[in-house]
C-alpha cells in the first residue's frame, strides 16, 4: 500500500515537472486574456450569468410558474421590473429562473455533442484508413443536413420536452468537434512520443484515450465556447416552431416566441427574454472570439 502512495506522489511530482512548460503557457495565456478586452467582457458576462443561475432561487421575487390572471399584461414597474406576461407571471422571475434552464441545456449539449464529436474524431484520426473514411463520411452527411431541419425532425420524432430539445440539438452539433478532433489526432499520432509509448507495449485504446485524446481537447474546448451561443439560438428556433420545451418551463427561447404576438402592444413580454438571450450569447461569442485571438499567434502582439 505504502509503496503505491509513494509511487503516486513521485508520479505527481513528475507530472508537475513535466507539465511545467504547459503551466507556464497557461500563465502566459492568462496574461493575454487579461489584455484581450473582448474576452474579459465575455467572461464577466458569463460569470454573471452563472452566478444568476446559481442564486436564482434567492433572487426571484415571484413564483415563475404559477399564473395569476388578475395581474396579466402589466408593463414594467417597480413591482414587476420586466412586467408580467399573458398569465400574469413576473417576467423578471421567469428570466432569472430561465437562466438555470439555459445553463443546463448548454452544459448537457456541450457534454454530449462535444463528447461524441471528440470521441468519433479521435477514433477516425487515430486509426485512419477506412475507419476514418466511414466516420468522416457520416460526419459529412450530418454536416450537409440543414441542422435546424434535422433538429426539428428529431424534436418532432421525440416529442417536445427539455430532454428531447437537448438531444435534438446535440445530434446536430457534434460534427464540428469530430472534424477538429480528427485533425488534431492525426497530427498527434505522428509525434515520436506516441511511437515510443507504442514501443513500450501500450495498446491502441490506451494510447488513444490516455495520450491522444487529452491533447485534442483544447481546440475542442475553444470551439465549444463559440458554439454555446448557437445552442441557445437553436433552442429558441425550436421554440418558435412550437417544438421547444414543455410549458410552463421558462426557457428563454420559448418565452420570446410565445410573447411575439404581443410585440406591438406589450413589447416587454418577448423583449426582456430576448435581451437575456442576446446578452448571454454575446458573452459566449466575445469569449470565444477573444480566445481565438489568443490562440492565433498571428494576432498576438
Amino acid at each position: 500500500m505504502k509503496s503505491i502512495t509513494i509511487e503516486k506522489r513521485g508520479k505527481l511530482r513528475d507530472f508537475i515537472a513535466r507539465r511545467k512548460p504547459i503551466i507556464e503557457d497557461w500563465k502566459h495565456t492568462l496574461y493575454l486574456w487579461k489584455s484581450t478586452k473582448l474576452a474579459m467582457i465575455g467572461t464577466v458576462i458569463i460569470v454573471i450569468f452563472i452566478l444568476i443561475a446559481i442564486f436564482a432561487p434567492i433572487i426571484v421575487p415571484y413564483d415563475p410558474i404559477s399564473s395569476n390572471m388578475s395581474a396579466r399584461l402589466q408593463p414594467p414597474s417597480w413591482d414587476h421590473l420586466f412586467g408580467t406576461d399573458q398569465f400574469g407571471r413576473d417576467i423578471f422571475s421567469r428570466v432569472i429562473v430561465g437562466s438555470r434552464i439555459e445553463l443546463w441545456i448548454i452544459f448537457l449539449v456541450s457534454l454530449i455533442s462535444g463528447g461524441l464529436g471528440t470521441f468519433l474524431g479521435v477514433v477516425a484520426g487515430y486509426f485512419g484508413k477506412f475507419v476514418d473514411e466511414i466516420i468522416m463520411r457520416i460526419t459529412d452527411m450530418f454536416l450537409a443536413f440543414p441542422s435546424l431541419v434535422l433538429a426539428m425532425a428529431f424534436a418532432a420524432a421525440l416529442g417536445p420536452s427539455l430532454t428531447n430539445t437537448i438531444i435534438a440539438i446535440s445530434v446536430v452539433g457534434w460534427t464540428v468537434f469530430a472534424r477538429l478532433a480528427r485533425a488534431e489526432a492525426m497530427k498527434i499520432k505522428k509525434q515520436p512520443y506516441i511511437e515510443a509509448i507504442r514501443a513500450v507495449g501500450a495498446g491502441n485504446s490506451r494510447i488513444m484515450f490516455l495520450h491522444v485524446l487529452p491533447m485534442c481537447l483544447s481546440p475542442v474546448l475553444v470551439q465549444l465556447t463559440l458554439r454555446m451561443g448557437t445552442i441557445i439560438l437553436t433552442a429558441a428556433g425550436l421554440g418558435f416552431l412550437g417544438l421547444g420545451v414543455r410549458p410552463p418551463l421558462p426557457e428563454w427561447g420559448s418565452m420570446v416566441s410565445d410573447g411575439r404576438s404581443y410585440l406591438v402592444a406589450q413589447w416587454w413580454i418577448s423583449t426582456f427574454p430576448g435581451i437575456a438571450i442576446a446578452f448571454v450569447v454575446l458573452g459566449f461569442n466575445f469569449l470565444g472570439d477573444g480566445i481565438r485571438d489568443i490562440m492565433d499567434p498571428r494576432l498576438r502582439r
Binding site: 473582448l38 429558441a236 418558435f240 420570446v256 430576448g274 461569442n285
Partner: peptide, 22 residues
C-alpha cells in the same frame, strides 16, 4: 475596432425571428 466587432457579433447573438419582427 471594438464597436465594429460588437456590432458584428450582435448579429449572431439574437434569434432571427425576433430581430425580424422588431
Amino acid at each position: 475596432d471594438h464597436f465594429s466587432r460588437i456590432f458584428s457579433i450582435l448579429g449572431v447573438s439574437m434569434p432571427v425571428f425576433w430581430t425580424g419582427l422588431i
